[in-house]
């Protein structure tokens, strides 16, 4: 009689199969860490963008808004830092009276573009890790399984009477590796798809805001130059 619990299967597997299993468990742990982290970061970015846009379009004074955003010691994120970069650049260039409105606006727009790409980089960080885990870990698990099955058939070669009972435990052990690979891959793929869409939507939102804000700045610059 032999106990065939999950734990026994894992313990009795070959060294290489055990290594593959350990690797997969680590990958799964790491990908879940990334999943939870990203979820929080994205949710926060979305909430801040919503709040900020609401404040921005409610007709608040832009100078006051800028002071509030720039003075926020807890750090700026996403849409706020885009606004801050654009407005700072615009105020700085406005000091120079000879600049024409187009130059003024394009300077601000450039600053906002840089900030936007930096923000996107931050949001996309480590999403590629999820993609890697999602696509590679089934193969890793499969490798462990093939190796384990190979070994149990090799043991069969020396026996005179071959029964299925001689190879079945080895194959069962080896198949656990595939199960683990799938366990690591499925959540990673789901999360990757979900977060990719979310990041894309955020990018669209930031980009729209950037364009609209640039439009407002352009009008402002024209009015300034008419007055001068």
């Amino acid at each position: 009689m032999e106990q065939m619990g999950i734990w026994e299967l894992i313990l009795e597997a070959g060294l290489l199969v055990q290594g593959v299993m350990a690797l997969l468990v680590l990958a799964s742990l790491a990908s879940w860490v990334v999943i939870f982290q990203k979820r929080q970061v994205l949710a926060r970015a979305e909430k801040r963008a919503r709040d900020f846009e609401e404040k921005f379009w409610s007709g608040a004074d832009l100078n006051a808004l800028y002071d509030k955003v720039a003075g926020n010691s807890a750090g700026r994120e996403g849409i706020e830092s885009i606004f801050e970069a654009g407005f700072r650049e615009f105020s700085r260039l406005r000091e120079d009276r000879h600049l024409n409105p187009d130059t003024l606006t394009s300077g601000a727009q450039r600053a906002m573009r840089v900030t936007l790409s930096r923000e996107m980089d931050r949001l996309e960080a480590r999403l590629s890790f999820l993609a890697t885990v999602g696509s590679v870990s089934p193969y890793v698990g499969l490798f462990g399984t093939v190796w384990g099955i190979m070994n149990s058939f090799r043991g069969l070669a020396g026996a005179h009477t071959a029964t299925i009972a001689m190879v079945a435990p080895g194959i069962a052990e080896a198949l656990i590796a595939t199960a683990m690979g799938l366990f690591a891959a499925i959540p990673a793929v789901i999360a990757f798809n979900k977060y990719s869409v979310q990041v894309e939507r955020l990018e669209l939102r930031y980009d729209n805001f950037k364009e609209e804000f640039a439009g407002i700045l352009h009008r402002q610059a024209r009015r300034l130059s008419e007055k001068a």
Partner: peptide, 30 residues
Amino acid sequence: QAVGLAVAVHLGFGLILFIGAWEWPRFDQP
């Protein structure tokens, strides 16, 4: 927080697996 949640997810899944495998028939050897 993320690390804690990830570990919790794995522990939960391990527990489910363990309970699911409890009733596995024993494997007869001659």
